[in-house]
Design a protein around this nucleic acid. Structure first.
Length: 539
RNA sequence: CUCCCGGUAGCUCAGUUGGAUAGAGCGUCGGAUUCCUAAUCCGAAGGUCGUGGGUUCAAAUCCCGCCCGGGAGACCA
């Protein structure tokens, strides 16, 4: 819609002018500021606007007016009718595009050492909605979860389960300083006893004192990997509870290490590595990193960074137009070194976009919750979902920008009133469904209706609903799905207001108003589904 | 010390890429239901957009300095 308007102005101004939304509805649907053009032509802005009005008048605009330095435009009924018919015909396909960039989107990638906590949920919901929106408007998106199934934390998981099992069996246990706590370890330990038998746990774990810290000597890959697989199943369940579209790929860190020699030789060939103090370092400081990083330890084992380098090498070999990673904000220090590595591998680091999802501060009854993965007192996704439902949680997360700190009280999400925006938007949708039920009509019946003599309220509501495609483009290209959420809240608000002011059924404009509501209903439904929320037909 | 994020109404946050009188929800106060779902609506009060400069017809928005809050800075993953 906007494009068409810009086109008309271009004929007279020589370029596409900015097309703005007027601050006040009375000014019309679109406003074009002409200050810049007036200056170029050395004319008074007010005069210039008046002259321009005469030039751009046509049947697609109901009115064109000059107010101050702006040209304000109102669209005609016919213009709006055409777009409304498209919405009603296409329904959930409205605004669908195709043939855009091929994108690899990696998100969540939480360590498989415990269930998802509320911080993970934010990244998960953010990535999922981004993928849904992007796919709708025509991006070819592959979603991926990187599983850190190698290294110390997996060993620690196995150890925790082993010790947990011994405790359950009444055997003596010496706890080291580091191990995973929490209820889920106890559950896992119980399962492990069933799976492996009691005898499996009869040997005590040796504890070594090292620099004043108690460290466990534990090497049981079989149990560790078993526990990891169990945790992955839990994580999948948590993701499902959040209504996350299943990931296309699960990439295992462990499975990638076999390529290390190959990747290492590429790095060496490109002069990225050097040896110092018996370790091998990456010259990441040549590319904006603060200092060089170790990739191989003295004992010859590659570090976590090495794993990440292999992973990104693998990603870039798969040839996407763009790579998007969603990381927790606490990982921002890794951006520079990973990008440096990509550069050293001979790929273009600008193709990798790293989005950070900031911390969530959870309150309950005004009291802060401290989250920690190691200690057992973090907030589990499943608890919150059970408490308030996935829809409400998704909605709250998606009303805010992902890269800003967010604070909210779980108690607020339990309220089933307008303080809970997901109810507010759903209620609007349910009301529309109810009106159509009462009218015994379907959305498709509305295609026969032609708009005429639309009043301001009707036009405003319809016009707002028709902004959806523009909002989707905007939300995706800025990687800000919250723009869609806020749009839906606005639309619901506009509808509720309309509803209270204007009778639909039984009025002489019943048909026309029903048609407008059909458009609003479809847009609300579509918008919610792109946020991963099921629109309710009844409340 | 370096880097990242933020500072907008009492609280939680938007602000469509630089436009007209600064926005919403919650909270406070006052109203609306013989009628399509009151889980809703209408109205009022509430602001030096952290601060100082710069850029221009125009700055909450862009640039620089400073102040305050949060986070990150591993041979951990």
């Amino acid at each position: 819609m906007k494009k068409r308007v810009a086109q008309i102005f271009k004929e007279h101004l020589g370029e596409n002018p900015p097309i703005n939304k007027p601050k006040q509805k009375e000014f019309g649907h679109y406003a074009v500021p002409i200050f810049k053009y007036a200056k170029e032509n050395k004319q008074n802005p007010v005069e210039f606007a008046k002259n321009l009005c005469e030039k751009v008048k046509c049947d697609e605009f109901e009115s064109v007016e000059a107010v101050g330095g702006f040209v304000n435009i109102k669209l005609s009924d016919k213009f709006l009718n055409d777009f409304a018919n498209r919405v009603i015909k296409e329904k959930k396909d409205f605004g669908k595009g195709s043939g855009k960039e091929k994108i690899l989107l990696e998100y969540v990638s939480a360590n498989p050492t415990g269930p998802l906590h509320i911080g993970h949920a934010r990244g998960a919901i953010f990535g999922d909605s981004l993928a849904r929106i992007g796919r709708h408007i025509g991006y070819d998106i592959t979603t991926e979860y990187y599983v850190n199934d190698a290294g110390r934390q997996i060993n620690l998981l196995g150890l925790s389960v082993y010790l947990g099992a011994r405790e359950i069996l009444g055997l003596d246990v010496v706890w080291p300083d580091e191990y995973y706590r929490g209820e889920y370890i106890k559950d896992l330990a119980n399962e492990a006893i069933e799976e492996f038998g009691e005898d499996y746990f009869k040997n005590p774990v040796e504890i070594l004192e090292k620099e004043g810290k108690k460290e466990a000597k534990f090497e049981d890959e079989k149990l560790s990997l078993w526990a990891k697989d169990k945790m992955l199943e839990e994580i999948k369940k948590d993701l499902e509870a959040l209504n996350i579209v299943p990931f296309d790929n699960w990439v295992s860190e462990r499975s990638l290490y076999k390529y290390w020699d190959e990747v290492r030789s590429i790095l060496e060939k490109n002069g990225a590595l050097y040896e110092k103090d018996g370790k091998i370092w990456l010259k990441s400081s040549e590319y904006k990193d603060e200092k060089d990083r170790v990739v191989v330890r003295e004992d010859g084992r590659p570090t976590y960074l090495a794993g990440d380098i292999i992973y990104h090498w693998d990603k870039f070999k798969r040839e996407y137009d763009r790579y998007i990673n969603i990381w927790g904000a606490d990982h921002h220090g890794y951006i520079a070194r990973v990008k440096a590595a990509i550069k050293f591998l001979g790929f273009d680091p600008d193709k990798l976009e790293i989005l950070l999802s900031q911390m969530v501060k959870l309150l309950k009854g005004g009291e802060p919750y401290k989250m920690s993965k190691r200690a057992g007192n973090f907030i589990l996704v499943r608890d919150v979902v059970e408490d308030v439902g996935a829809d409400a949680l998704r909605f709250v997360f998606l009303t805010k920008k992902a890269d800003t700190h967010l604070e909210f009280d779980v108690d607020d999400l339990n309220k089933k009133d307008s303080s809970n925006p997901s109810y507010y938007v759903n209620y609007a949708h349910a009301r529309i469904c109810s009106i159509f039920d009462n009218a015994k009509k379907s959305y498709d019946d509305m295609l026969e209706i032609e708009f005429k003599d639309l009043n301001e309220d009707e036009k405003d509501l319809l016009f707002l609903a028709l902004q959806l495609p523009y909002v989707l483009e905007d939300a995706f290209s800025n990687r800000e799905p919250h723009r869609l959420t806020n749009f839906l809240i606005d639309l619901a608000s506009e509808f509720h207001s309309f509803y209270n002011k204007n009778k639909v059924l039984g009025s002489e404009k019943e048909d026309i108003r029903l048609k407008i509501l059909a458009v609003v209903g479809i847009i609300l439904n579509l918008g919610l589904s792109l946020l991963g929320i099921e629109a309710k037909e009844r409340m």
